[in-house]
Amino acid sequence: MKVEEKEHIMTEPKTIPEINKKALIEARNVNVFYGHFQALKDINISMNKNSVTAFIGPSGCGKSTFLRCFNRMNDYIDGYSIKGEIVIDQKKINWKNVVIEELRKEVGMVFQKPNPFPKTIFENVAYGLKIQGIKDKSFIEERVIKSIKDVALWDEVKDDLKKSALALSGGQQQRLCIARTLAVEPKIVLMDEPTSALDPISTASIEELMFELKQKYTIVIVTHNMQQAARISDKTAFFYMGEIIEYDDTKIIFTNPKQEKTQNYITGRFG
């Protein structure tokens, strides 16, 4: 049993079948450069629908860079270039003719620090719908309320929808940002260390939320917090120096990693 599994892990990155029907996200031989610096080396990975995948690894290992490849947020960085293929929902997304705006409606993102717009709570959540040109007020309202309920923020803000989002606490702001992302009903939600700027109580509520969201969305989360990765994810990828050292079920990564580097990292010997 053990040996088989090991083989499976060792070989998976190298031999991805042309089309993996179950996978929603696939990366094939992805290399990313910032000028001459190579930030990611030969990344191969596939992620299934309705799963939570965590990227862990020390700072500067490339995990955030990789996350931002999925909604092409790296496009704005000087000197950025990518080789290889990223396929989302059977469509290659890193080529010229992809309409970035369309892609980002499918692949939402939650950022490290809560970044609500300096507008009302309602306007924040409605924004994504409005920029799509949706004018139907009752539809927008319905969706806004639903999204706010989905992130368990409704009871706290239901009377304050017209108030500025900047008046909310950090944890509430981050849940609002998640609601804002959900309002456009993406298939995938990318989270870039979503709780690193929050207190433990807010963090707990957002982690709880992720369990719920898994039913409907596919989540990829970058985190520095290993307990968090262990608590919430189905699969975990360990990044080091621009490479995926190990990618497996979270349970295995945290209890019985195959690679020494992974072992060292999760036991806190470096990073």
Binding site: N71, M73, I100, E101, E102, L103, R104, K105, G108, M109, F111, K113, N115, P116, F117, P118, Y127, G128, I131, Q132, C177, R180, T181, V184
Partner: peptide, 12 residues
């Protein structure tokens, strides 16, 4: 961060 949030939602 505000601009990032907006483009990440699919705004042009």
């Amino acid at each position: 961060s505000i601009k990032d949030a907006s483009v990440a939602l699919g705004a042009s």
